[in-house]
Design a binder for these strands. Structure first.
Lengths: 248, 248
DNA sequence: AACGCAACTTGAATCTGGTTCATTATCCGG
DNA sequence: CCGGATAATGAACCAGATTCAAGTTGCGTT
């Protein structure tokens, strides 16, 4: 059994190598210039070997996005347990998302690209499933925040909606603003400034609209900014130290 | 002069032919299977001629998306003048968007694809500009709705925000929900039902949160649905009859 | 220690499809 | 009707993803 096991491990290790190296390529030269043959070469393997792991280039891209997303997801896990009001936790979700994406521009670009129906459709079902699952912890963390809020009475639940569905609004606001912020030239064309401050303000408005206690004054931008800073500080302290993976 | 003028017209006509035929291709076989040479052939032109019009395939895709977007934009123009309360007008925007995208799935897919930084970056600046401009009327219409709302006192403006920026929240909610709704399998994976009813509910919550009068009860789903139906009916009556473009 | 088999690796060849460009055709003003 | 400018043509080109026939490797067996 042990040889089989060892092989599996080696295989997994190599897959990581490919993914890691591909991320490096993308960071250096952009998604556009990632080439299967060059990637294989850079890892000291033949092109064909790459295809042992990934059925197609799209598959590889999903795999990379999945890896990123897993890392992103871990950032959300401590949130439900942070010493914050339920509403602040919800904002912590928004802030975590903003900060992660701001500091990983490649991740957003890639995720955006693979989420495209064109690319999505040409990846294998397994990879698609893996990507969807990598996002699940975020979904769960957020749902938990909502559930707790309802339990503590900060939010009076909406009978027809599940926790996820209540959280979905906030999530969509995020996704939409990221898209806007990344659409090169759109902000300028439409004279929108500082998208993430705006996102924060609208998130607060939405929470108010859902009746999520304590309501705050959305005109008080100073207060909003200060609260965000407080929450960010706490998030930094609670950050999982990024598990630096052992070099092989 | 007239011959030069005629040539320009012919050129424009042909460009339309290409775009139209490409849309047809996409509708029939999907974005994935659009091929430059086959498209040219289908229009009875040589491949090279296609490249007289579009510097690259990406350019062509932007052109198609732009054409669609223009049509989409016209649907928003009557909204600021509809006999509705300002808040209902804002909902009319949301509904128009939902309905247009629901009935033009290809449009969303294409727009999503070309908005991707990868594709966007490899199109020519002119095409990018044209696409951005095609969306401007929507932006203006929505801004106007906000401006009117502030003028009539339905919405007490937010000193630090421009009308566009106030509208941006609602817009992002839309964009985000469309993304979610189109991400094959995500809704199921995260157990979210009926995304567009949800979008409506969250839009109402956001408007409430912005203090947009008259506030409504977001728990009253029946009322929300009925109001949406009323607005939709009005929108249908005011629909610009789609200008059926003369066949050449 | 040698053998045979299965599984894996290799990278040159294949294939697809976007893009180019030398050639040819068209059009226009004189 | 001529000469040159302008545009159309489509076969050739090229990049790069994907394949696959040939060669290796490593394991268990004799």
């Amino acid at each position: 059994m042990s040889t089989q096991e060892r092989k599996r491990r080696e295989r997994e290790l190599r897959e990581r190598l490919f993914v890691r190296e591909a991320q490096e390529f993308i960071r250096r030269e952009g998604l556009l210039h990632l080439q299967m043959s060059r990637l294989a070469e850079a890892c000291d393997y033949a092109t064909g070997t790459l295809y042992q792991h990934f059925a197609s280039k799209e598959d590889l891209l999903l795999a990379i996005a999945t890896e990123d997303l897993k890392r992103r997801a871990t950032a959300f896990q401590p949130i439900p347990h942070l010493p914050l009001s339920s509403r602040e936790r919800m904002l912590a979700v928004v802030l975590t998302d903003i900060d992660f994406i701001s500091s990983h521009p490649d991740h957003f670009q890639l995720l955006q690209y693979v989420s495209t129906e064109v690319i999505w459709a040409s990846a294998s079902p397994d990879r698609r499933k893996a990507l969807a699952e990598a996002g699940a912890p975020i979904c769960e963390a957020v749902s938990q925040v909502v559930t707790t809020a309802v339990a503590t009475g900060d939010l009076s639940g909406i009978p027809t909606l599940r926790p996820v569905e209540i959280a979905a609004g906030s999530w969509c606001l995020n996704v939409g603003m990221h898209s806007l912020a990344h659409a090169h030239g759109l902000l300028e064309a439409y004279a929108v400034r500082d998208p993430y401050a705006l996102l924060l303000q609208h998130s607060q408005a939405l929470l108010n609209g859902l009746g999520w206690q304590p309501l705050i004054d959305i005109r008080d931008t100073r207060n909003i900014a200060e609260q965000a800073q407080r929450i960010r500080a706490l998030l930094r302290d609670n950050m999982q130290p990024v598990v630096s993976e052992r070099p092989d």
